[in-house]
Design a protein around this nucleic acid. Structure first.
Length: 431
RNA sequence: GGCGGGUUGCCCGAGUGGCCAAUGGGAGCGGACUGUAAAUCCGCCGGCUUAGCCUUCGAAGGUUCGAAUCCUUCACCCGCCA
């Protein structure tokens, strides 16, 4: 029995949108351990669910016995890769450095855990600031710049889109592809890295790297591009209620993370399940069939929510998130829930505390973050979208009654069908 | 350096002296219908002590009874020319 081919697996799951010479890549992967890398730029304090697909590729290759390198772009994050729309705002070096660290610690579990538990190769972490910062302008122009033809650089989609837009493009962002190309060259020289994976929106930068290695080392190295994932409604992955779904639990609670996947529509979950699930193909097929036959059961959504929450946040958080969901969306009367259950559920959903007297309900909605302003809270109440303990609120100017308070001192606030927060009064001890 | 064009609410984009808190579209939010789905329909979508008031149209000044709209200066962006 031959070992399953990792390229086959990636294709089956739809994780490959484009690649360089695939025959050569397959041969290389079959021949022995390949060192491969994927880079993440610190453009925010955390990665988000859109980045998960890169980890799926990294993990599949790791499982096949290859050596991962995770690059965090301490240098490229200072420059900014060209977005199709407009120039990026530069972030301060201090901030970028902070994000680099934060991202690096969050990313570890994806590859370190399999290394520890299954004896796979442990990832190497690198920061491109290490080799980019020492580059002088002379080095950059003489040693690197000579390898790049402006004609080809202009032809890259990210650049040409901007050239044809009102926004134009700065020399800074135009240079980005050279830095990313140089990363591949550095990793080839330092670690023998011969494969880069990344999103298809990065394809121009990725091939700039394979070209550079070919020019400077007369060697063909490889690249794999993942498909760009969009939702059925055309919006980007990972946005919900106007907010990004981050991987960092400080920014997006595991509960909300779980709810994001659970709330996917049927079209999206069917498209995404193969991409994001590492279950055996038969299980994935069964879930897809279930989604077709009895979509209202939402089995595919639930399976995906459990699997990904477990991957990103761990077993305990899956249990908490599920229990919270059951408590807050279940049929049970809130007053029948035990204080412990209620507290656990609400702390997952989001909690606000009030010192002293209860404010008006409208103010409570604003303080809980459910509404962005008092006006917003009043508006929501007027529209019939605000609930206290699952009962619609009609007057926002009243103060909660003692009889409203649930066991444990909680009020359950809800906006719309499914955005929930808890509020509790703190009896301030006299100073 | 010269000439021209531009900077409007989350995004795109109307608006060239009062009828502008500012048309329209998208995103978002709420309701109805559902399956914690999609589609659809209806409503909302700067803030507040909400039949009223306050602060917005790159920044600062100015003209005017009155300015997003006119003038001046500054900043930034785009294009053509040098």
């Amino acid at each position: 029995m031959s070992t399953p081919d990792v390229v086959d697996e990636l294709h089956r799951r739809g994780l490959i949108a484009q690649s360089t010479d695939e025959t050569a890549l397959r041969a290389s992967l079959a021949e022995g351990t390949v060192t491969y890398y994927c880079g993440f730029d610190p453009t925010a304090a955390s990665l988000h669910v859109g980045h998960l697909i890169q980890f799926m590729v990294l993990r599949a290759l790791q499982r096949a016995g290859h050596q991962p390198i995770v690059l965090v772009g301490g240098a490229t994050g200072l420059i900014g890769d060209p977005r199709p729309s407009a120039e990026r705002t530069l972030n301060s070096p201090e901030l970028v450095a902070e994000w680099v660290e934060r991202i690096r610690t969050r990313v570890a579990p994806f590859l370190d855990r399999p290394a520890a538990e299954e004896g796979l190769r442990a990832p190497v972490y690198v920061n491109n600031l290490d080799w980019t910062a020492p580059l002088s302008a002379i080095d950059f122009l003489r040693d690197l710049g000579k390898n790049f033809r402006v004609n080809r650089m202009l032809a890259k989609e990210a650049v040409s889109a901007r050239l044809n837009s009102d926004a134009g493009i700065s020399y800074t962002e135009f240079s980005y592809q050279i830095l990313q190309a140089n990363d591949f060259r550095e990793l080839f020289e330092r670690h023998g890295c011969t494969l880069q994976t990344g999103g298809s929106d990065q394809w121009g930068n990725i091939t700039a790297g394979t070209d550079l290695v070919r020019r400077t080392h007369a060697t063909s190295v490889h690249a794999l591009g993942t498909p760009l994932i969009t939702r059925a409604d055309g919006t980007k992955i990972g946005k919900t209620e106007g907010a990004t779904v981050w991987l960092d639990p400080e920014l997006t609670s595991p509960y909300r993370f779980f709810q994001y996947w659970l709330g996917l529509d049927d079209v999206d979950v069917r498209a995404w399940l193969p991409l994001f699930s590492e279950r055996p193909p038969e299980e994935v097929a069964a879930l897809l069939a279930s989604s077709q036959e009895k979509p209202q059961a939402r089995e595919a959504q639930r399976a995906l929510a459990e699997e990904l929450t477990r991957l990103v946040h761990g077993d305990d958080e899956v249990r908490q998130a599920e229990a919270a969901g059951r408590a807050l969306f279940g049929r049970a009367e809130l007053s029948d829930l035990s204080p412990d259950t209620l507290e656990a559920a609400l702390s997952e959903a989001g909690v606000t505390t009030v010192e002293g007297e209860w404010p008006t309900l409208a103010a409570l909605f604003q303080q809980s973050g459910l509404c962005s302003s008092l006006s917003d809270a009043r508006r929501t109440i007027k529209e019939g979208g605000a609930y206290l303990n699952n009962a619609r609120i009609t007057d926002g100017e009243v103060v909660p009654e003692p009889s409203d308070v649930l066991p444990g001192g909680w009020l359950v606030l809800r906006r719309g069908r499914r955005t929930v927060a808890g509020a509790r009064q703190i009896v301030s001890t006299r100073v």
